[in-house]
Design a protein around this nucleic acid. Sequence first.
RNA 1: GGGCGCGUAGCUCAGCGGAAGAGCAUCCGCCUUACAAGCGGAGGGUCACAGGUUCGAACCCUGUCGCGCCCA
Length: 862
Amino acid sequence: MTDTPQQLAAAYQPGDVEHRRYEHWVASGYFDADAKSDKPPFSVVIPPPNVTGSLHVGHALDHTIQDALVRRKRMQGFETLWLPGMDHAGIATQNVVERKLAAEGLSRHDLGREKFVERVWQWKAESGGAILGQMRRLGDSVDWSRERFTMDDGLSMAVQTIFKRLYDDGLIYRAERIINWCPRCLTALSDIEVEHTDDEGELVSIRYSDEIVVATTRAETMLGDTAVAVHPDDERYKHLIGTEVELPLTGRRIPIVGDSHVDPAFGTGCVKVTPAHDPNDFEIGQRHNLPSITMMDERAIITVHGPFQGLDRYEARPAVVAALRAQGLIVAEKRPYVHAVGHCSRCKTTVEPRLSLQWFVNTKPLAQAAGDAVRDGRVRIEPASLAPRYFSWVDNMHDWCISRQLWWGHRIPVWYGPNGEVVCVGPDNEPPSGEGWVQDEDVLDTWFSSALWPFSTLGWPDPTDDLAKFYPTSVLVTGYDILFFWVARMMMFGLYGMNGKQPFNVVALHGMVRDQYGKKMSKSFGNVVDPLDWIDRFGADATRFTLAKGANPGADVPVSEEWCQGSRNFCNKLWNATRFALMNGAHVEGDLPAELSTVDKWILSRLQHTIADVNEQFEAFEFAKVCDTLFHFAWDEVCDWYVELSKSALNPRVLGHVLDQLLRLLHPIIPFVTDELWCALTKSEGSVMVASWPVADEALIDDVAEASVELLQRVVTEVRRFRSDQGLKPGQKVAARIEGMTAHEDLVRSLARLEPAGDDFTATATVTIATGAPSEATAASAGTITVALDTRGSIDVAAEKARLTKDRAAAEKEIAQATAKLGNEGFLAKAPADVVGKLRDRLAVAQADVARIDEALTRLTA
RNA sequence: GGGCGCGUAGCUCAGCGGAAGAGCAUCCGCCUUACAAGCGGAGGGUCACAGGUUCGAACCCUGUCGCGCCCA
């Protein structure tokens, strides 16, 4: 880039940088993966967002984590692929387009299937996929040349291929079952598309005969009852099994059956059986060969003849109860009665269990394999504590209803012939033609195609270079809340489609983004964060840092605007530190000098620890700790101490090196500001994103330098504390005599604003710092540093007394604790020697402190 | 009803067997020439409760209470 500013502005302005940087990255091809590369692969497929969706804060978290992983691996020299794309979101997308049609006074049926699907594609071209542009604003380093969509030709072929295979293997079948039905979307739903909430309803007890009373929350379904069931061992009703009872309002006679699934303790112990409208009742019906009476149509309107015909289910309920009450058959009513009710996850309409002919995947063998892959360690779930959640799902999976009564989606590749023939057509087969052959009307669940995503996007079923290089993918990053949606289904189809090879090696789970009080974000509560708003106001880096800083493995991520401001401040801090460095000639040319000051050795040593820690934390998906470690190193150690200590004797090469490494370490989390600064610092026209990732250099670890600077820090801090307690102005120089320091006296003077003692020096107060364990101290230093200060008679005696008294109390407490422990024979006998030794040292230091403080207090009162 | 997890400073969270930590918020003092989106200093916690194990428990075990989430 030629427009790298030589002179940095006084504050970081993300808006000036982000767009330019992103365009530069894309134009330079940094994001593009090369399947023919010799580098080891690192691949991630994006959990495809919905084509109708826009970037919400949950995506922002998910993408920040993926981008951080990918950017680090790229810098580490891996051939990285992060593959973007979207799913076609059958129900959601069809709803969107149908709403648009409705505005024109049309329904999809007015257009017909073909024209409607054309309209959907047209909608997608015009308004779909807004999220892809928003991903750029966040900084996602995805390979745009490989962007995929579940309805693409290639992915559609993958769908047809796997359908045919599963069908031929007997793992896909068609059957009449009770399924979850949405009376508004007019389609079947799978179990995971149903959300259960505790709703207020009613529990009505209805008398069916002198001896039989049933309780129900859905009185209207009694019109479809075909039996009453009791527990076969229930003494109250045993004798009635095999007899019949007249079903009120209908005059039909229905049998009383014994079924051990009935809970005799619940209610009266009798249950009405409506096989066509309840999954449990359906099973009872199967066991007892009961007929099924469908008493509602697909819109949940009553279809049985009689006074209730034509009523909606919610109109029918009170009408049925009223009719029963008129006959004196209502025994009890409980309102409100709170019970779990299923809702369509797309439109929130109450789901209606419905008996219908649908296509299913037999998940038994697939789910077994999906569980085994984790059990035998081929796939690791991070954090491991969430594995039970995965197992509870895959080990108890019901067959998966995959047919949807929609037009938008992959049409089921099955053809029915005039004589009852059923033919499943693979991608290489010609569909049967001729009189009377018709294709199944239904489409497949969107998840059926999403489950193929980790390999369909790489070209499967063709044996492509991408598949060879990048499958299995390295890691799947997603929220634990959709462990079931993503992980379980991708695992099932990945293992099946790729001959037992898992779709990903690691599943890294994060939590859900919450507000600063740990509350779930919801539109009605008004605490929803729009990541684009934050990007506008604080920058993409600040937004990303805020999210990553809260991301402890598997745990929810609280965020707030204040914290995002703090992240913005951090970016600005980095900006200004680099600005200072450049103003003072910091550079990265040549090797580090052989001769280094203690302060330089110290920061280089601290840098090595930081690099090592960050690498460990990255490997463990500990993003919160990565952020914490780097934040602390950058702000506290580099800015507050190193830069300040360097001001008197700056080593531009060391400062340049420290910032260079720091910016590299931070780049995966906050890519924009680090790139801008790194390019300015290194005078590069490339990017830090293709610079090498830091590796800790053991040779630069220097315990002596670290101890020396730590001591210096303690002395400075103690003097500053004294000054603050005394109410001395920050700018006021104080004459001081420092005793016991072997080095850094000048640095203490400069940071603590002290000046050398003159001829008229009179100590009015002393600050004393124990240099550490007396057992380790050399005789010469006597383990104490003393700073005698001359405050020119203006000493605040009360404040100084208070300070000393407080220190004394702390030391006394220390003595009490240590003495108690050291007086315990069990402790001396069983505790490790180093623990005992440390405690003895602490005791000695504390005792010396008390003696010293007492002396000072005496002097003060004298 | 079954399962998982959590209760540590005002808020959000680290720490998970050997001296109670961070960020934000609060208080005091500062425009010290990279940064007021800043600098220096300070206050604040019987680590939910009750037992137990241990020389030693925020940390391990048991129970109680409170709060989440998933499944039925």
